[in-house]
């Protein structure tokens, strides 16, 4: 059975149709890149998977391990293993990163009926994980993302992913706003999390990220549906030809 099956998904945002009969299947352990021009529905797909309000599914279904997740609240989806690395991670003033991580991890574990992490175990887990990602202890003490640079925010997203160990990670333009060094660090962090038990959807405009996170499959989205699927070489092809062929074809 595939990990994720999206069938004929139609989504409206504020009365505007964004996804238009999208079909997509993600296999267990697969890293799928999703590429496409601005406004094609990439970020909408990410938000719909995570369960954001105001994204109205008018038709179709989304199955995770065969189970429909569309009626689940965002926290229930997270407990089932869905994780969204935000394109623009929000600042949460007054909530320390450490508190946030522990609350999230233990909330998920509680929902799944697993025991909570003890404080020493949790601290060790965070310390080891953050060291690998170059996230300092100082950042862990600070409020979530407050005063973080763009790169620090993205690293913090990957840190959360590493702590929460999702089965499906959706990386929404994780490369945006990153310089080349930060891109490498973040990509290494993501690659360390590649596993036969974890699938990833890597959303990006540019081929560059895929040099670092090499996908098993590339899907091209245009006007709210998948218009082409291929191997990693498809990304290179797009880099050369651009998206015009798809936007025209779909029009």
């Amino acid at each position: 059975m595939s990990l994720l099956e999206i069938k004929n998904l139609h989504v409206e945002v504020e009365g505007k149709k964004i996804l238009n009969g999208l079909n997509l299947t993600i296999e267990k352990g697969q890293v799928a890149a999703i590429m496409g021009p601005n406004g094609s529905g990439k970020s909408t797909l990410a938000y719909v998977l995570a369960g954001k309000d105001n994204y109205h599914v008018t038709e179709g279904e989304v199955l995770l391990n065969g189970e429909s997740i569309l009626d689940m609240a965002p926290d229930e989806r997270a407990a089932k293993g869905v994780f969204l690395a935000f394109q623009y991670p929000v600042e949460v003033p007054g909530v320390a990163t450490m508190t946030f991580l522990r609350t999230a991890l233990n909330a998920q574990r509680k929902t799944r009926g697993e025991p909570e992490f003890s404080t020493p175990d949790f601290i060790k887990l965070v310390r080891d994980t953050s060291a690998k990602l170059g996230v300092s202890q100082e950042h862990l003490r600070r409020a979530v993302n407050v005063g973080f640079s763009g790169g620090e925010k993205k690293r913090n997203e990957i840190l959360q992913m590493a702590i929460l160990q999702p089965v499906l990670a959706v990386l929404d333009e994780t490369d945006s706003g990153l310089d080349i060094d930060a891109l490498k660090t973040v990509s290494e962090g993501v690659n360390r999390l590649r596993s036969p038990d974890r699938s990833m959807i890597v959303i990006t405009h540019y081929q560059r990220l895929l040099d670092y996170i090499v996908p098993d499959v590339v899907h091209v989205i245009s006007k709210g549906r998948v218009v082409k699927t291929g191997g990693k070489e498809l990304a290179l092809e797009l880099e050369a030809t651009g998206y015009a062929q798809f936007t025209e074809a779909a029009a």
């Binding site: 369960g51 965002p74 926290d75 989806r77 997270a78 994780f83 007054g94 609350t103 909330a107």
Partner: peptide, 28 residues
């Protein structure tokens, strides 16, 4: 609502997300 969605997307329940944000509000 954007902050609340962020917290919930990490597995924190509706009420607990609100409680964290309220705590942060008065925490200052």
């Amino acid at each position: 609502p954007g902050l609340k969605f962020y917290l919930m997307s990490r597995g924190i329940s509706d009420k607990e997300s609100e409680a964290l944000l309220i705590q942060a509000f008065i925490g200052e």
